[in-house]
């Protein structure tokens, strides 16, 4: 039986990257997680359109795609803010006061962990452990790890990160 490949959702070049990833893995069902990674990397999050396209391209039920996308913490179905701030809540960071750091950042930004500010400038997230235990408490600002955080210097750094992008 000849398999009909679904057309790419749009002209957007990023879909070509996604397609290349699926092609490299032979459009097999087991490519699902790798493909979701690529979509999230390229688009920042997974929307409905992306999920149903992947389901058709890999020939897996949409329920499975949705199930996998929501099972793993790493995938986001909502667009993220311009900047991201990830507070590590691993054990080593925790015993050194990561919860106070998080509280200070929540107070400063006015949002809770998992939320994005209304101006779409900042998404605040928490991590299980980023493996930077020796320099804890650690906070990741836009993908860059900063160690030895205190409530004060964590907020100060965040101000700088948001300020730079504005």
């Amino acid at each position: 039986m000849k398999v009909i490949k679904p057309p790419l959702p749009s002209e957007d070049k990023r879909w070509k990257i996604v397609d290349a990833k699926m092609r490299r893995l032979g459009y097999a069902g087991h490519a699902l997680i790798e493909t979701l990674h690529t979509v999230q990397e390229s688009f920042g999050y997974l929307d409905k359109e992306a999920l149903s396209f992947i389901a058709r391209a890999l020939r897996v039920p949409p329920s499975r795609v949705y199930g996998v996308a929501t099972f793993y913490n790493f995938f986001s179905l909502k667009p993220q803010g311009v900047h991201t701030c990830v507070v590590c809540l691993g054990t080593a960071c925790y015993v050194k006061g990561a919860s106070q750091v998080l509280a200070a950042i929540e107070l400063y930004s006015g949002i809770k962990s998992g939320e994005t500010t209304s101006d779409k400038q900042l998404s605040l997230l928490t991590a299980r452990c980023i493996g930077a235990c020796a320099i804890g408490p650690a906070v990741v600002y836009d993908g860059i790890v900063a160690g030895h955080r205190t409530p004060d210097n964590a907020v100060e750094k965040l101000e700088g990160v948001i300020g730079d992008g504005a």
Partner: peptide, 25 residues
């Protein structure tokens, strides 16, 4: 190489293999 997606349970061997197969861990 297979990249995890943030699920602690995937450290369990049978869950990890489910994840490699592209399923929920």
């Amino acid at each position: 190489l297979r990249i995890g997606a943030g699920a602690f349970v995937c450290g369990e061997e049978t869950a990890l293999m489910a994840s490699i197969e592209g399923r929920r861990g």
